[in-house]
Design a protein around this nucleic acid. Sequence first.
DNA 1: GAAATATACTTGAGTAGTCAATTAAATACG
DNA 2: CGTATTTAATTGACTACTCAAGTATATTTC
Lengths: 142, 142
Amino acid sequence: MTDDDSETRAAFLQTHALAAARVSKTIGLRLSVHGISLNEYLILDYLASQRDRGVPRIELAGHMGLSASGVTRLVAPMEKTHLVEREAHARDARQSLVRLTDAGARVHREAQDTFVATADELTRGLQPEDLQRAIRIFETIR
Amino acid sequence: MTDDDSETRAAFLQTHALAAARVSKTIGLRLSVHGISLNEYLILDYLASQRDRGVPRIELAGHMGLSASGVTRLVAPMEKTHLVEREAHARDARQSLVRLTDAGARVHREAQDTFVATADELTRGLQPEDLQRAIRIFETIR
DNA sequence: GAAATATACTTGAGTAGTCAATTAAATACG
DNA sequence: CGTATTTAATTGACTACTCAAGTATATTTC
């Protein structure tokens, strides 16, 4: 690993962190018209991708990069507003599964339009091929 | 803007946000041995890049993508531990400048080694050219 | 199959930020 | 100039997480 390489890698991490702060702020603001936060959107989106499957909270924590308690506290208000519902696991009483409700699916579809529109806006002028390359980097880092 | 493009742009934003959560957690953990958080490191790093110049808090907010009050609350403990010191602006009594102390510069140098080592680790196996491309994307988004 | 260990989740206490309101100083305008 | 507006920073009240500890259930080990 040359020093030049290390400098590039450090700069990558730094600009990544700084950009993330701004981006999450912007998206959060846009999503707020749907009454949800960015993390709530990401939960809805993951649940939607899992079809009708009830998802263990620990799996949501893994997907989101949150602690188990973070998931508890993130999902609780979503239960109150009936975006998701709680479901018992058939063979493991420790697990409480999270399932998307019809209302949750509706909010997800609406919010997705906002999310995509915001993504178009924020990445305007950037080449899709470059974005694809960046996506592969993000997936590697995870 | 084709639908395929939009999908790529949305996926970019999503994986970006998810990766940022994990990365900041990892780096934060590593930096904690120096007694500072990721955001504190980024502040030290920015101050170090500004030579001996006292930096207005509002400028730090702009750089970090934080609110003004976020900066107040982030910098306050750093003053208490004497990593930075407060300085009056010569011609504008509203501004209170933030200046790196010698102790702050020392902590920054030590933490920088940790930061670079962590960056090497997290981006191991990724091509510097690809990281450079990603950096340009992050700078555009900001 | 009982005891030890591991896992899923929740809760209390603390940290890190947000926004809205406030204060004080600087700048712009009639 | 003096009044109105803008700007920099702080504070109070809130949200969103973290970690450590606790509870309940599953799994492993002997």
